[in-house]
Amino acid sequence: MDMDLNADLGEGFGPWRMGDDDALLGILSSANVACGFHAGDPRIMDRTVRTALDRGVDVGAHVGFPDLAGFGRRPLQMDTPELVAAVIYQMGALAGIARAAGHRMTHTSFHGALGNMAAADAEFAAPLVRAVADFDPALTISTSASRAIEDAAERCGLRVRTTFLADRACDDAGLLISRKLPGSVIHDPEQVLTRVRQLLEEGTVTTYAGSRIPMRAHSILVHGDTPGAVALARGVRKLVEAHGRVVPISRQTA
């Protein structure tokens, strides 16, 4: 079994750092890099990309609402052309920085409220996915389980790969539940590792309501901004390697 190990990185701003990106880049096979709208800035993006290149880690654009104060977790009212332009702007920024560093951007993922809204609403997802295809049809969309995004990607001829968020609870449709609900973010490392083990051994996840649903995941994501993220990522990698290989989604064939 080939499985990508992923985290959202570059989520500081100026002198403020969030998470131990350097340590995580020694464990991951791919990284979603903040592009300056919900977090990050040009210098952080450049440093993250260059470190990823040095460690052999893939990079993708982690695009979100223009909401630094809310970390991109607040829904914003934006008309579709404005939102599409914002997505393209962010991808262009990371692609340019990656090219200058001698790296390449392999994928795009939607952050926070933008990702949750796209995952749950086919009409909302369609123009965002089309923007990715128009920017670079060779990109892969990395997303949590979402029929809306998967169907839009298929219509656009884009490759899509499902990411299992190891420390986030989902509903019976596989969609992430609101962070406002108790237990939506799973902080207990042993519980997170149990969820990963279940995914690897059974191909299922246990939902917030207690149901077991099938999930075909190509990537496992650990949030880099949570306490103990580095140790947790090491634990997840050890589990993956016990069941197969850690391989970025750009090099997965199945």
Rank of each mutant, 00 (worst) to 15 (best):
A69W: 12
A69C: 12
G70F: 00
G70L: 04
F71A: 03
R73C: 06
R74L: 04
R74F: 05
Q77H: 15
Q77T: 15
M78F: 08
M78N: 14
D79E: 15
P81D: 05
P81V: 02
E82P: 11
L83S: 12
L83G: 08
V84M: 07
A85T: 12
A85C: 13
A86K: 06
A86E: 12
A86C: 11
V87S: 04
V87L: 12
V87Y: 07
I88Y: 03
A93D: 03
L94S: 09
G96R: 15
G96T: 12
I97M: 08
I97K: 13
A98V: 03
A98F: 06
T106R: 14
T106A: 13
T108P: 05
S109E: 00
G112T: 14
A113W: 04
N116F: 10
M117Q: 05
A118I: 12
A120C: 13
E123Y: 05
E123T: 07
A126I: 11
P127C: 07
V129W: 00
R130S: 13
R130E: 11
A131Q: 08
F135D: 01
D136L: 12
P137E: 14
A138F: 12
A138Q: 13
A138H: 15
A138N: 14
L139E: 03
L139R: 03
T140E: 04
I141K: 06
S142I: 10
S144A: 13
S144P: 08
S146R: 09
R147S: 07
A148H: 09
A148I: 10
I149M: 00
E150I: 11
E150Q: 12
A152W: 00
A153Y: 02
A153K: 08
E154L: 11
R155Y: 08
R155L: 11
R155I: 05
C156F: 04
G157N: 13
L158E: 07
L158R: 05
V160T: 11
T162D: 05
T163W: 00
F164Y: 10
L165A: 04
D167L: 05
A169P: 04
C170Q: 00
C170R: 02
C170G: 04
D171I: 15
D171C: 08
A173K: 15
G174E: 00
G174D: 06
L176R: 03
I177S: 02
I177M: 05
I177Y: 06
R179G: 07
K180C: 11
G183Q: 03
S184K: 03
V185S: 01
I186V: 15
I186C: 10
P189G: 05
V192A: 03
L193A: 05
L193H: 07
T194L: 00
